[in-house]
Amino acid sequence: MQRRKGSNQKVGVLPEKVRAQFQLVQDEMNIHFTNKALIYQAFTHSSYVNEHRRKQFTDNERLEFLGDAVLELSVSKYLFEKFPNMSEGELTKLRASIVCEPSLVVFANELNFGQFVLLGKGEELTGGRERPALLADVFESFVGALYLDQGLEVVVAFLERIVFPKVEVGAFSHVMDFKSQLQEIIQQTNNGLLHYEIVDEKGPAHNRTFVSRVLLNNQELGLGRGKSKKEAEQQAAQSAMAMLKQSKPEGE
């Protein structure tokens, strides 16, 4: 299938200094656009377009729309495969915490996207370069531009570097706090005390995998694996909840 390159958007002539900045951001990410106009557009705010009407620039709003959809699809697929025991409601809640403005701002700041945005003078003077909504929009626009230029596989590879590792180390554990959920279940049935222990550690120090188990009155309820002890314990709790759900008599 032939990918659209976005060749029909209006493109003004950027100063050499600005084009050098965009080369820098591509070098830092080791991602180089075939159609340079797409990355320029991804970082072009509407305020910049309004101040350069005669130079035929296009803002990033359409790319933002596309990037939002691509990001949601990519994150959905990752979560679906990563958490096979998670319910539809839990998946939706976790996805929403990843594809939301505060999280997108974190990703954009990690890549220093703010310094590369093309802004109008008024937006610049009022602190637009650090405005959360603007940064979130730029991140989505970049994803949209990358998708048009190089396809979904490259987008997923980009997210595997910037977004997905944060899920794996528990950055969104406040959303999927299975340990608290399991504790509530046990308290409702008054079935005793829960205890977590690490039963195995594998791999080198920089890429270690931990195995945890959760016990109820010294009886194992579930096993979990993760890149950190915290993640392994959360996975063990999730496994335990799945086991308790399966063993629960129908109708209860």
Rank of each mutant, 00 (worst) to 15 (best):
G226P: 04
L216I: 12
Q187G: 07
G12P: 00
M86Q: 06
K227V: 00
M86T: 08
K93D: 14
Q181T: 14
N218I: 03
P132Y: 01
N190W: 05
E124N: 13
M241E: 05
T209A: 06
K10E: 08
E64A: 07
L146G: 05
V155I: 10
S46L: 09
Q234Y: 00
L66V: 12
A133V: 13
F113N: 11
E110S: 15
G224C: 02
H32E: 10
K82A: 07
E110H: 11
E61C: 05
T92S: 14
A108T: 07
V169F: 08
E130M: 03
R131D: 03
M29H: 15
L223A: 09
Q246N: 08
A171E: 10
Y147A: 06
L221A: 01
P204S: 07
V11W: 06
I162D: 05
P15F: 00
P102Y: 02
F33M: 10
E153L: 08
N218R: 07
E61D: 02
K55G: 04
E231A: 07
R53G: 13
R95W: 02
M1L: 12
I185K: 11
E81K: 11
G128D: 10
N217H: 03
K202G: 04
L159Y: 00
N85T: 09
E72S: 14
Q181F: 10
G144E: 03
F57A: 08
E160P: 04
E110T: 12
L71M: 12
S141P: 05
E153H: 09
E124T: 15
K82Q: 15
E72L: 11
F158I: 09
T58R: 04
R4W: 10
T58V: 11
A157W: 05
G120P: 00
F139V: 13
T34M: 13
Y48M: 14
S141M: 10
R225Q: 11
L24F: 08
E51I: 14
N191Q: 15
G67D: 02
L159Q: 02
N35Y: 03
S173M: 06
L215C: 14
G170Y: 00
F116E: 06
E110L: 03
A20W: 09
L91V: 09
G128F: 02
R208K: 09
R53V: 07
S180W: 07
